[in-house]
Amino acid sequence: MQRIGMVLTLNADKIAEYKRLHANAWPEILDMIKACNIRNYTIFLREPENLLFSYYEYTGTDYEADMAKMAADPKTQEWWSVCMPCQKPLDTAREGEWWIEMEDVFHLD
């Protein structure tokens, strides 16, 4: 199992919309997340900084292939098209980065 933590910011004027979207996440999206071997997926919001932190556990054997499968899914692309306008990458994001993966420096079971 691989633990993944990522960070992103939320546009201040889109917080309510983002919360509403995730309170009513589409079943097809939830199914795709599971089909791509992701478990224990959680998104945290820190206000007033509007910082989003996501955590999940990847239980598959080919992370890149599963992420490509998710990215190619038309329903996932539609979901992203409504969520992405709510978000913005950190100022330190590299070209093409959106959610920025974080280094796993400590874990206790």
Rank of each mutant, 00 (worst) to 15 (best):
T76D: 08
E78K: 11
K69A: 04
E78G: 03
A71W: 10
Q77D: 01
G96A: 04
Q77T: 09
T61Q: 05
E64A: 13
A72K: 14
P85I: 11
T92G: 07
C86R: 12
V82I: 15
E64T: 13
C86G: 07
Q87W: 07
A68F: 01
K75V: 13
K69R: 15
P74R: 04
P74S: 06
A71N: 15
C86H: 14
W80M: 13
D66R: 00
C83E: 13
K69E: 11
E64G: 02
D73H: 15
D73G: 01
D62V: 02
P85R: 15
M67E: 09
D62T: 02
M70L: 15
Q77H: 03
A65F: 02
D66K: 04
W79Y: 14
G96I: 08
T76K: 10
Q87I: 12
P89R: 05
Q77R: 14
L90A: 08
A65H: 01
E78C: 03
R94W: 09
A68P: 01
L90R: 03
E78D: 12
M84Y: 10
Q87E: 14
T61H: 02
D66I: 08
S81K: 11
E78I: 10
Y63M: 00
Q87R: 12
K69F: 08
G96M: 07
P85N: 12
K88I: 12
A71L: 11
W80H: 05
Y63R: 01
K69P: 04
R94Y: 08
C86D: 13
W79A: 05
